[in-house]
Structures are given as C-alpha cells and as structure tokens.
C-alpha cells in the first residue's frame, strides 16, 4: 500500500491529521481551512484519520470511509461527502478524547478575551448565531465545542469550519463578509455548507478567553426576542446538561460547571430574528461584570 502523506491542521485546542487520496477532499480542505499553512514536520495529532474511497463498482454509488487507528468507527458517506464526513467524524473522535477538559456543547465567541458561551442542544441555532455574531465583529472560538480548562476556568478556541444546515446557509451566506465552502446537498442532516471563520480568529486560536456571559439560545420562527435571567444554580445544571462529558467527569465536572456559573451571568434568549438577537446579546454583554 502506498503511504499517504498526512495533512496537519492545528485548530487551537487540538491538532488533526488527515490523509486521503481523494483530490476533491483536499480542494475542499483548502477552501474551508484557507489560513492554514502546510505543516511539514511530524507532530502529535489528537485525532489522525484517513478518508479512503470505497469500490468504484458499488451499484448504489461510490462511498468514502473514515478510518481511525485501523478501524472504521462510522458508516460510510457518499463519495462526494468526504469533507462533511471528516468534519463530523473528527469532531466526534475529539469529543471522546478530550476529557482532560470540560467539553461543553456550545458556540463560543469573544470580544477581546471576554467570552460569550452559547450552550444548546443540536437544532437550537447555536451554529447560526455563533457565525452571525462573528460576522458582527466577535472573535470566533467555536460553534460546537466550549473547551474549558478546569484548572483555570478559561476557554480554549477550537477554530474549525462551522457546518450550516439548510436555511441557515442562505441566512448566513447572505451576510456581508461571509465565506462559505461548497454546499453538500441532501446529507443525512439536509443540505450542509461550512462557514469559514476569519483570519484574525484563526491567528488567535491559541489565545484563551475568560468566560463572562452565558446565553442559552433557542430559535423560534417568527418569535419576538424574549430574554430572561437564569439563576446561577439553574445555569450550572443547564451547562452540565449541555456538556459532552459532564457526567463522565463526575465530581470534577460538577465543580467545573459550578465554578463556571459562579464567574458568569446567564440568560435565556428565545429569538426569531438574528439581528434582534445580536442586539440583545450586545446589551447583555455590555452589562456583564
């Protein structure tokens, strides 16, 4: 077998390595990781994967498989969808391996080094909101992972392309300054296109941020924005619920979410209009201690 070279991607809190003979995947990676310079020396990677094409003669269309450590942890994707498979799969692997940190299921953006955390279940609109805030001038840390160093309580960026789904593609793509990768139609999650965070956020990917504000967002079509404070104890529990590994960390996880709730103020925000939500958040952020 021919040895494929690995392409290293340093996204901040983690380093990824990906190898593939699929040229289109590399073109797509160039598009959604435009600021990354090639890393030539061999370095430790937190997740190292290969995306290998399946048989050309499969009657129902060629597929692509993600291999990690000699195993196939996931079902194959259609051949054209190598990028979504890499993004989704490597995120999943990281979520299993980064238990040295508290991992929140949250979007994270910051002004200077003061961070806003947006914890939410899938479908609540955290990716869309994180991208919109980024386009409104906030630093992008992540749309998916709130990586928290439990010793200092600081947030580590994980600057990766943000997968926008279905209507969000046009909503965010239509905003000035938005850079999106190719659209992958009809994946299991519907149409997907990756939003590319800007160069400043990429360059700041090793710069930690201090959490000051937590907003639990919930998109509701047509709703007028409604914002309510969340008491600290409740916020701690809701942060825990929106975490990948709160349970697995046991007492450490409990301490970490309590510490996070103590040093931040928390609100719940139901919104129907993105710009109105951003305006609300700016006010909350300004008022946050």
């Amino acid at each position: 077998m021919i040895e494929l070279p690995y392409r290293l991607l340093d996204v901040g809190a983690a380093r990824l390595a990906v190898a593939s003979p699929i040229e289109r995947l590399h073109k797509h990676l160039d598009l959604v990781y435009p600021h990354h310079k090639p890393i030539t020396q061999p370095l430790f990677a937190d997740a190292r994967v290969a995306l290998l094409p399946g048989s050309r003669f499969r009657p129902r269309g060629r597929q692509v498989t993600l291999w990690a450590d000699g195993q196939r942890p996931f079902e194959p994707y259609p051949y054209d969808c190598a990028l979504p498979l890499f993004e989704w799969g490597s995120n999943y692997l990281l979520s299993q391996r980064l238990n040295a940190y508290l991992l929140l299921h949250a979007g994270v953006v910051a002004r200077n080094d003061r961070a806003l955390i947006l914890p939410a279940a899938p479908g609540a609109g955290k990716t869309t909101l994180s991208c919109a805030l980024h386009l409104a001038g906030w630093r992008f840390l992540s749309d998916e992972f709130g990586v928290i160093d439990m010793e200092t309580g600081e947030l580590l960026p994980m600057v990766r392309p943000a997968p926008l789904k279905n209507r969000s593609i046009d909503v965010i793509g239509g905003r000035p300054g938005a850079v999106l990768g190719p659209v992958f139609p009809k994946t299991r999650k519907g149409d997907v296109a990756h939003f590319v965070p800007d160069r400043e956020s990429f360059l700041a990917r090793h710069q930690r941020a201090q959490p000051v504000l937590v907003v639990f967002p919930r998109f509701q079509a047509g709703a007028a924005s409604q914002c309510a404070p969340v008491p600290r104890a409740q916020a701690a529990m809701r942060i825990g619920l929106n975490s990948f590994n709160y349970q697995a960390l046991g007492p450490l996880g409990l301490e970490a979410v309590v510490a996070l709730a103590r040093r931040t103020v928390a609100y719940e925000l139901v919104y129907g209009d993105l710009d109105d939500a951003i305006a609300h958040i700016e006010v909350l952020f300004e008022r946050a201690p």
């Binding site: 430790f44 980064l98 040295a100 960390l249 046991g250």
Partner: peptide, 21 residues
C-alpha cells in the same frame, strides 16, 4: 511526558473510572 500526552492518558483514565462507577 509532554502535556498533550498527559491529557490523552488522563482522558482515558477518566473514562475508565466513569465506566467502573
């Protein structure tokens, strides 16, 4: 070992003790 290696070992140890629990 370096910090990054320690983090990975720590991560595995934590999951194992969670499963044991």
């Amino acid at each position: 070992m370096t910090d990054v290696v320690r983090r990975h070992l720590l991560s595995s140890a934590r999951i194992a003790s969670y499963r044991a629990q």
